[in-house]
């Protein structure tokens, strides 16, 4: 990235401060996290490998903020889940090896079971919907590529993605470790 592109991005970023903080606050539900991600966003713009030309700095910055805030929310959720698991495990270890072994076996089972449930949820999608989901989300193809590949309209891609995401969220919300 040229210094010129960076400078342009930063001036846009500074000008967007109020709306970005508002967006991050709405997305993360707390001001401290919004501030953190706002800072992180700057570091990202400064140090990440960015494209040579950024056509639309505003939407580029919003997209980066969107990705960072999603990752932030996920890792916060996982930390909470892990901390509660960890304290359960250590409490049990006090009781002696036999009990710790049981906890280990339960963890092992839980990890395996979780993977199985997630894969089953994907397999349970209607065929076309599953194909769109795998193409877009897992293989990272753009919606435009997928419309050409599968010969369907952009609206249909979006519709299948919505169905897939809703189904996965509904299935996993009940069983996920992260939702306890």
């Amino acid at each position: 990235m040229t210094e010129e592109v960076f400078n342009r991005l930063v001036s846009v970023y500074v000008g967007m401060r109020a709306e970005l903080l508002r967006f991050l606050h709405a997305r993360l539900g707390n001001e401290a996290a919004a501030d953190d991600v706002f800072q992180e966003l700057f570091l990202k713009l400064r140090f990440a490998q960015l494209p040579e030309h950024v056509q639309n700095p505003r939407s580029f910055i919003y997209r980066t903020a969107f990705n960072l805030s999603n990752a932030h929310a996920r890792s916060a959720r996982r930390r909470v889940a892990r901390d509660s698991q960890w304290s359960e495990t250590t409490t049990q270890k006090v009781g002696g090896e036999a009990i710790a072994d049981v906890a280990g076996a339960e963890d092992r089972l839980a990890a395996k079971e979780h993977l199985r449930v997630v894969l089953q949820a994907i397999e349970a999608l209607p065929p076309k919907c599953k194909e769109v989901f795998i193409n877009c989300r897992i293989e990272g193809r753009s919606h435009r590529e997928v419309t050409e590949r599968l010969g369907i309209s952009a609206k249909t891609v979006e519709k299948h993605m919505t169905t897939a995401l809703k189904h996965l969220a509904l299935t996993l919300a009940d069983v996920s470790r992260d939702w306890g």
Binding site: A26, R27, L28, G29, N70, A73, R74, R77, L115, V118, L119, A121, I122, F133, I134, R137, I138, L165, K166, L168, A169, T171, L172, A173, S176, D178, W179
Partner: peptide, 25 residues
Amino acid sequence: DPCNRLAFDAVDMAAAEATEAWEQR
């Protein structure tokens, strides 16, 4: 509505978990 954010979290988490599980598979 704050519930919208939580629902979005659930969707985003499910999408990420599905991607990870599929890669492990």
